[in-house]
Amino acid sequence: MDITTLIKLTNGKLITNTKTEDIDIEFAMASDLMSDVLTLDTVNTMLITGLANLQTIRTAEMSDVHCILLARNKKSTPEMIELAEQNSIIIIESASALFKIAGILYGNGVKALF
């Protein structure tokens, strides 16, 4: 799934200036537990989370996750945005609940990991 479609489907707002054209999402993981995210060993995987802090971005960086969707109006800080942009990571914010976002994306073909 490309980022434009993803944003449209989730009623999201693109926060970062990171390039989005090269990103194609195949899998998603929804979690607020960073060690859980760090077990990922797939590529083209996005993170849907309610955890918005610098370590969310660090975790994505280490796991080669290039798209983070912050659910339920969780806001990113300027430091988070800067770190994400440095690491070619996209941040999208959405007002919808994590459950709803996950359901919509799953219904539109984004795959679960387990």
């Binding site: 607020d32 537990l33 960073m34 060690s35 859980d36 760090l38 077990t39 955890l51 802090n53 370590q55 969310t56 975790t59």
Partner: peptide
């Protein structure tokens, strides 16, 4: 609150 404390870190490192 920072997103840690699942008790998975050392197991992750081991793997």
């Amino acid at each position: 609150q920072m997103g840690f404390g699942a008790g998975m870190g050392l197991a992750n490192i081991n793997k």
